[in-house]
Design a binder for these strands. Sequence first.
DNA 1: CAACAGTGTTAAGGTAGTTTAACTCGTGCG
DNA 2: CGCACGAGTTAAACTACCTTAACACTGTTG
Lengths: 183, 183
Amino acid sequence: MDIWKRFGEKEVSHSMAHYLQAVAALKADKGHARVGDIADNLGVSKSGVTSMLRSLERRGLVRHERYGCVELTNEGSGLATRTESSRKVLTMFLAEILGVPEDVASEDACMIEHLVSPEVSLELLRLTTFMRSKHPVAAKFREAYRASPRSCAEHAPDDCDMCGSTCLHESLMYQVEKAPQRA
Amino acid sequence: MDIWKRFGEKEVSHSMAHYLQAVAALKADKGHARVGDIADNLGVSKSGVTSMLRSLERRGLVRHERYGCVELTNEGSGLATRTESSRKVLTMFLAEILGVPEDVASEDACMIEHLVSPEVSLELLRLTTFMRSKHPVAAKFREAYRASPRSCAEHAPDDCDMCGSTCLHESLMYQVEKAPQRA
DNA sequence: CAACAGTGTTAAGGTAGTTTAACTCGTGCG
DNA sequence: CGCACGAGTTAAACTACCTTAACACTGTTG
């Protein structure tokens, strides 16, 4: 039970994952990552960077000494690369296979990249690769899939092997009000 | 830029999504949701529930008066149902289509259910439905896919149309050390 | 070689979500 | 009736992440 509580026990939080990626990207582009660059890159204040670096250092993901440049440890760099790859795979899958708009695909991928397990990312890569491949079955599939219904047309409540008692399609259509909510 | 910052601007946080689902589940099972039931259901303290209910009330997702039962507003209930449906779709897709182990599928679905956009969930439902269907192409696809390679066997760096310069497959294999990390 | 510009850090404060401990409400029973 | 006990709430404290404002370091340059 209580799987939901493991959210806070992931190797890295959403913020941390992005700090690591920013450091990796700056290192790759400019040869070094400084506090100010990271701050600009992520759109946060420099003091925020300093304090996050302290957390990352405690976790053994970066090395940073006062007024110096930031280096990723092996662990930090592995994590940054894995997260990056995870995002790439997710974005490809969402945009090219599911066919959702690019901006939605990118945003969703960014939100979940650090949360999906490597098993899932690996299988998603495999599926995406196969679906895009020249394999004759893949081509047929893409075509048939394109023609498949977008909604539960002939949906009979309690007799749909996907849905059960609440229609999944309908409940997913629920749109949150974009109304003002704070005084 | 700064898509990553929108993480904190989702309609509901991970915790909130689970509180809403707990309230909905208790209401469905027992006819009412009380603070203690919610606390037991989620494995948190009663005071934690009280304070979360305050936040949810501010956002217009529940109604709760001192010492009374908790009710979902229409908005809260829509959100609870949508999140639940999103989890179902994700779990089905991960377990049945990707074929990852049940426990991994459930855990990943739980982590991301509130983060994937409805567009993505809807398309995922469509793909899952089609893949499981009796459509002849779907059956062929499942078979061919089962036989497709699990890794980038004939992968040539910089000449793989998925990977680019870092092999996605390899970087996703990176395993985080499960070493102790706090003093 | 000393002052200035710019880079980085500290200090203090805010929100979100959690905990424990202590207090209050309200009700069922003797 | 009254009071005890369980359910709920408040208060204080903690972690994580962020901000602004003020201060400290560093290196370039006149």
